[in-house]
């Protein structure tokens, strides 16, 4: 996984709540069997509208997405995270994320930052007033910073450490092979098995 320490970039303000995973990446894109090439599917339906924020010339190259509450609701498709990353986003800020989406993001090095809705509104206002405004998302200091705004954010220490180091979860878990074996040895016999009957 790609490590995340700190990132500075321009903002795409997405003034919508409940941005569900079907909007982030529609189902027909899910037929692909790779982790890349999803950038054109990102917000596909909304991008047909010339007025959509990602279509505005001043938003080209934006790498910080600031969205309304309940971002990433809906399906478990990790493709939503890949699409955001393939497009060029490094981090998403919202006042609330859907659980599975958040978990998927952190596993891929896309930092999801939870800030109060008032702070999200201020970020929207700042970047709408001046699209050139750059925002720094600093995981080391656990801070979002831009001219006239410093906002701390929380992230559980373990998740932060894995992101900062870019650690692969599977290798970490495989270190506990003995514990897994011990657990398996004690599983009751009545537990289900998929072996054909």
């Amino acid at each position: 996984m790609e490590a995340f320490t700190t990132h500075t970039g321009r903002v795409a303000p997405l003034r919508r709540s409940n941005v569900d995973t079907d909007q982030i990446i529609p189902a027909h894109w899910l037929k692909k069997v790779t982790r890349d090439g999803f950038e054109d599917g990102l917000f596909e339906a909304w991008r047909k509208d010339p007025g959509f924020v990602l279509n505005q010339p001043e938003r080209q190259g934006a790498s910080v997405l600031v969205a309304g509450p309940d971002f990433g609701t809906g399906s478990s498709r990790e493709h939503a995270v890949w699409a955001l990353q393939n497009y060029g986003f490094r981090t998403v800020i919202s006042s609330r994320f859907a659980d599975i989406f958040r978990g998927n993001s952190l596993k891929n090095g896309l930092l999801t930052v939870v800030l109060p809705q008032e702070t999200v509104e201020r970020l929207w206002e700042l970047t709408e007033a001046d699209p050139a405004v750059e925002v720094t998302v600093d995981l080391v200091a656990r801070e979002v910073r831009t001219d006239g705004l410093v906002a701390g954010f929380d992230l559980d220490e373990n998740a932060r450490w894995r992101l900062l180091e870019g650690l692969d979860d599977i290798s970490l878990t495989l270190k506990y092979e003995d514990e897994i074996k011990a657990y398996e040895a004690n599983r009751p016999a009545h537990k289900p098995s998929t072996a054909p009957v």
């Binding site: 399906s75 478990s76 498709r77 990790e78 493709h79 995270v81 599975i100 978990g103 998927n104 596993k107 891929n108 979860d169 599977i170 970490l172 878990t173 495989l174 506990y176 897994i180 398996e184």
Partner: peptide
């Protein structure tokens, strides 16, 4: 429900953190 990274994790380890 889990994402694809976790699917891989479960396939490889039968566990999830």
């Amino acid at each position: 429900g889990i994402g694809t990274s976790q699917v891989e994790h479960v396939l490889a380890t039968q566990t999830l953190p």
